[in-house]
């Protein structure tokens, strides 16, 4: 029952995205609008089918406790930011949610299903922390983004719908014109946009992003914020790890602040001055990488 209902929501959102893209880019991929577009943002009341429900979670890394009993609930349609200083456990929390770090205690349920029995990975789009280490073999932007579509069709050759979803994801992050370029030729911000497109290619209901703004130049930050805004408007649920709120601030419904593996704040996002007052804020700000795109001063635009 629940799964069926969720799938319908997913379909409504997909068509919503397709229509927007179609209107903006003239791709002609728009489908008949027989389902009302889901544009209004109404985070659902808490239910047993919350996209993420973490209760008393503990985890250790190399014998050191990193999570010491955190509760984290993300309701459908919500945008939750996970904040905290380096080493506060925010990345570990997210990586335990997607199953990369085993929990030593507590409970985790995804869409109402205990983590161990959860198989519906197509509902989750994961954007891992960007690593600077390049892969050994060249890969084009389109090849990397296509990997995200495997969440929908694990085996078997890609069909027309799969290629269309990949193209749509590329357009959403403004990288369609770079589809045939090798990812090694991209700036940090462009690379981050590719990783987000990869997650969007699976048309997920829940986006989980680990530091999507780290090392991202200003131009890409704005594009990322725009992409996220469209996803949220279309009904996506988002959990993101952030070092500071930055340009995403207007999108965020709720902030959860971690310190030393414990939740110290769960509520409205801290105000502009508040983010600098966060415990342990160490004033690391993203700067454009030296090989990034030319810096736009604003005079030209």
């Amino acid at each position: 029952m629940e799964a069926e209902e969720a799938r319908e929501t997913g379909v409504a959102r997909e068509t919503g995205v397709a229509r927007e893209t179609g209107a903006a880019e003239e791709t002609g991929a728009a489908e008949e609008p027989d389902i009302a577009p889901a544009t209004a943002r109404h985070p659902d009341p808490p239910t047993t089918a919350d996209p993420i429900s973490l209760r008393g979670a503990t985890a250790t890394l190399g014998g050191r406790p990193v999570l010491r009993g955190i509760d984290l609930t993300v309701r459908r349609g919500e945008v939750v930011a996970l904040l905290g200083a380096n080493g506060s456990g925010k990345s570990t929390a997210v990586r335990s949610i997607v199953g990369q770090v085993p929990l030593t205690g507590g409970e985790l349920a995804l869409f109402g299903t205990p983590r161990r029995r959860f198989r519906d990975w197509a509902r989750i789009g994961y954007v891992p922390q960007r690593t600077t280490a390049a892969s050994g073999v060249p890969a084009t932007v389109r090849e990397v983004v296509s990997a995200g579509r495997l969440a929908r069709r694990r085996f078997g050759p890609p069909r027309k719908a799969d290629r269309a979803a990949v193209q749509r994801a590329l357009e959403l992050v403004g990288m369609a014109d770079r589809a045939r370029d090798p990812v090694s030729a991209l700036s940090g911000g462009q690379h981050q946009r590719v990783l987000i497109a990869r997650a969007l290619a699976g048309e997920p209901e829940l986006l989980i992003m680990d530091e999507p703004m780290a090392g991202v130049d200003l131009a890409s930050q704005e594009i990322l914020a725009g992409t996220l805004r469209e996803q949220v408007a279309a009904g996506a649920t988002v959990l993101l790890v952030l070092h500071e709120l930055g340009p995403l601030e207007p999108l965020i419904d709720r902030a959860v602040v971690l310190r030393d593996g414990c939740v110290v704040h769960d509520g409205p996002p801290p105000k502009a001055v508040g983010q600098h007052a966060l415990p342990g804020h160490d004033h690391v700000h993203p700067h454009a990488a030296p090989d990034a795109e030319p810096i736009r001063t604003g005079l030209l635009t």
């Binding site: 197509a122 890969a139 090849e143 990997a147 495997l150």
Partner: peptide
């Protein structure tokens, strides 16, 4: 035959796991 799947696993194993591969 498994080119796309093996590419995904070798390119980013962590992401591949979250796609359910």
């Amino acid at each position: 035959g498994l080119r796309r799947q093996l590419f995904a696993v070798c390119q980013d194993e962590e992401f591949a796991r979250v796609t359910g591969l």
